[in-house]
Nucleic acid binder design. Structure first.
Length: 473
RNA sequence: GUCCCCAUCGUCUAGCCUGGCCUAGGACGUCGGCCUUUCAAGCCGGCAACACGGGUUCAAAUCCCGUUGGGGACACCA
């Protein structure tokens, strides 16, 4: 049984795009499922566009979503000798030839052909020149087959047939000595023993160009699987216009990596009616059989829902640690450090029902992390009225004299007071809520009291009473 | 322009390969209700799709052909 070897091969020309993450994910899932090897390769042969920052962003993004690689990251610029060696080998075998047409000439001819509506491919004028030692700048071209067909048995699309007549004599070595994409991929995929090339279907038409190169080089042709693309709401290729497309932007917006993975995998893949998956479940269930052939529209609303689900059902201690950077950003770093872990977990459990992102959760956490939470003016105006002051005072006294200060006894105190005063639950709970949190919206009032504990509850209640009495309003 | 891919609710999809169980299922969103101390969460329900036209067949969302529509590729970018 031959071991599965797959790769993710991004070019470092910008941040890591979520479309790229999905491609990486499918490769990773397949590798893990088959207990194969997942390789990370950086395709940086375009010197003018590749940057070190982009490489860093790719690695950071991959690490954040948890797609760990078994080999690499390899950089193509460190493997130049390999490409040159194999290109020259093709030259020796006359499967490649030197072309002395300049980029400008080619450009002009292409435009002319386009104007006349003709085929936009290299006219082959250097094909039979037999140039052996080009004097000036020259590029090496692959002699592509012009007869017959190239047939791809795609893992996702099925059988795809191309007439070789449409094949161009691609440049494989630029005049600056650098290999071009279609050639370096072939050499690397072959040398790295890649068994399955899983990539976006924008590469489908590159496949018949690459297959003859594998053959000319004497390499085994790998299997191919072309994933449908992700599109924006207007059905055009997903780009910045549609919103954030960098994975790290989603991290910063408070999305969980597992939610990102869960959402992305469902974009083009399914397992019956199931919507929520753990990573382990995905590894167990993933297969190309259920990968969709058609493109999918990215839906931020559903991603948000998936994220909220994972926040609600995730391990609280994990959510606490993921939440930490957002709390630090708000200046609560110190406050949290001196807070017991168990208390933080309770806070998260209390807040998770109404937070769709970690950013929302951090905002909701504020009143509980500061000794004197800021009071929303409208909430104060509406609920902390002078006539509420005596009732709150009574409540405070009874709370204070309560021996155990537990959720149950406090609820009892509340009930008795409601009966005595004739107030409805909402009429009492809202003022208390504003006194304790400064807001008109919060988790259940007894949960809040329970989390705050006697001391903080009493302090805040007193402050609320003062506000209600008009000490400042 | 040439080549290639694709086509089920607004969106993600199940079903299609191996026609009948489909009055087309689920999810997001949306609308209405329940629950309720606010807001959520949860629960119940509504609206909403087989692109079109021909075949094949007793029977087609499912098979075949065409049309239309969408996407992708045609660089000394990847």
């Amino acid at each position: 049984m031959s071991q599965v070897r797959v790769r993710f091969a991004p070019s470092p020309t910008g941040y890591l795009h979520i479309g790229g993450v999905r491609t990486a994910l499918f490769n990773w899932l397949f590798a893990r499922r088959e207990q194969g090897t997942f390789i990370l390769r950086i395709e940086d042969t375009d010197q003018s566009r590749s940057t070190d920052e982009a490489i860093q962003a790719i690695l950071d993004g991959m690490r954040w979503v948890g797609l760990d690689w078994d080999q690499g990251p390899f950089r193509q610029t460190e493997r130049m000798d390999l490409y040159r060696h194999h290109a020259l080998q093709l030259l020796d075998r006359q499967q490649a030839y030197w072309c002395v047409c300049t980029a400008e000439e080619l450009d002009a001819r292409r435009q002319e052909a386009q104007a006349q509506g003709g085929q936009q491919k290299y006219d082959g004028r250097c094909r039979e020149k037999g140039i052996l030692n080009p004097s000036g700048d020259a590029a090496l071209r692959f002699r592509a087959p012009q007869a017959g067909q190239t047939i791809i048995e795609d893992l996702i699309k099925g059988r795809v047939v191309f007439d070789n007549a449409v094949l161009d004599d691609l440049i494989i070595l630029r005049s600056n000595g650098y290999p071009t994409y279609n050639f370096s991929v072939v050499v690397d995929d072959a040398l790295m023993g890649i068994t399955h090339v899983i990539r976006g279907d924008d590469h489908l038409t590159n496949t018949p160009r690459q297959v003859p190169m594998f053959q000319a080089l004497g390499f085994t042709v790998p299997q191919f699987g072309h994933l449908p693309m992700i599109m924006g709401s207007d059905k055009t290729r997903l780009s910045k216009r549609h919103g954030a497309t960098s994975v790290l932007a989603y991290r910063d917006m408070g999305y969980l990596p597992e939610a990102m993975i869960n959402y992305l995998v469902r974009l083009g893949w399914s397992s019956g009616d199931q919507e929520i998956f753990s990573i382990a479940e995905l590894v167990e269930k993933f297969s190309f059989e259920h990968v969709q052939k058609s493109a999918a529209v990215f839906n931020p609303d559903k991603l948000l829902w998936v994220n909220a689900y994972h926040i609600r059902h995730g391990d609280p201690s994990r959510i606490v640690s993921l939440l930490m950077p957002f709390l630090e950003q708000k200046g609560f770093g110190q406050a949290v450090k001196t807070t017991p872990v168990g208390w933080m977990e309770q806070l998260v459990i209390m807040l998770r029902e109404r937070a769709r992102t970690l950013v929302e959760m951090a905002a909701a956490a504020e009143p509980y992390l500061m000794p004197e939470p800021t009071m929303e003016p409208e909430a104060v105006h509406k609920f902390l009225t002078p006539q509420m002051a005596p009732i709150l005072e009574t409540l405070a006294q009874r709370f204070n004299s309560d021996k155990v200060f537990s959720k149950e006894t406090l609820e009892g105190i509340f009930k008795v007071l409601l009966e005595e005063s004739g107030l409805k639950m909402g009429q009492l709970a809202q003022p208390v809520r504003v006194a304790l949190t400064g807001r008109a919206v919060s988790p259940g009032i007894f949960e809040v009291i329970d989390l705050l504990g006697r001391e903080a509850t009493m302090m805040r209640l007193r402050r609320g009473i003062a506000v209600a009495q008009g000490v400042h309003s």
